[in-house]
């Protein structure tokens, strides 16, 4: 698999765009899934996943072929997701201030940070609920939890993707797990 990917990358480095299409084909679902779980929104997930592939293409010459391509690619994607999550908050804030009186509607849209009423949670389907609980996690923990439990990657690889020491990754997973446990205490 890695040898196959490296062959494609060598072609891409020579400027062959068709070879890159094959790389996108290979990783599209995993990358999209990470983005979707991080962002909780299909449109944004698609946008960010495409952006990640584009950046990988433009910066392909900075990729070290001795390393794993997926690690490098996921790193680009998780960084983009975290940036997007952090940018999103002030955006809503501005909107809320401008609209003033309609603020209530805006708040209901940013439900992510606020807990929904109990009966609404109960009406949610399991899949919906999973996504909802993941998106309530602070972004630091969210990335670690998604990579560990959705992508099921080994801790060493997660530490490389997030560019954090192994110990820090463990701590984030532990805290993320603990936060989820508390969120789910009524389940």
């Amino acid at each position: 698999m890695d040898a196959l990917v490296n062959k494609r990358i060598a072609k891409v480095m020579k400027g062959d765009q068709n070879a890159f299409a094959e790389i996108v084909e290979l990783y599209q679902h995993q990358l999209y899934q990470i983005c979707y779980r991080m962002l909780g929104n299909k449109h944004e997930a698609e946008d960010i996943a495409q952006e990640a592939f584009m950046r990988a293409y433009v910066n392909i010459h900075t990729f070290d072929q001795k390393r794993k391509f997926s690690t490098w690619l996921y790193r680009i994607a998780t960084n983009l997701c975290i940036d997007r999550i952090r940018k999103k908050k002030p955006d809503y804030h501005l909107d809320a201030e401008v609209r003033g009186a309609e603020g209530l509607d805006m708040y209901s849209k940013i439900a992510n940070d606020d807990q929904l009423p109990e009966e609404e949670l109960m009406r949610m389907e399991v899949q919906e609920r999973v996504q909802y609980e993941i998106s309530r996690l602070p972004d630091k923990y969210r990335a670690a939890i998604v990579l560990k439990y959705i992508e099921e990657l080994p801790l060493a690889e997660i530490s490389e993707i997030l560019d954090l020491p192994l110990g820090t990754v463990k701590t984030r997973i532990h805290r993320g797990r603990e936060a989820l446990r508390k969120q789910l205490s009524n389940l």
Binding site: A21, V24, E25, Q28, H29, L31, Y32, Q33, Y36, R37, K42, E46, A49, Q50, F53, M54, V126, Q127, V130, Q131, E133, I134, I145, Y149, I150, L180, L184, L187
Partner: peptide, 18 residues
């Protein structure tokens, strides 16, 4: 619970759009 999250697939025109 987290692992019960189903696998998500990219939209069918994802490669082309990218």
């Amino acid at each position: 619970f987290v692992q019960s999250a189903s696998h998500i697939q990219a939209p069918s025109d994802f490669v082309q759009k990218t």
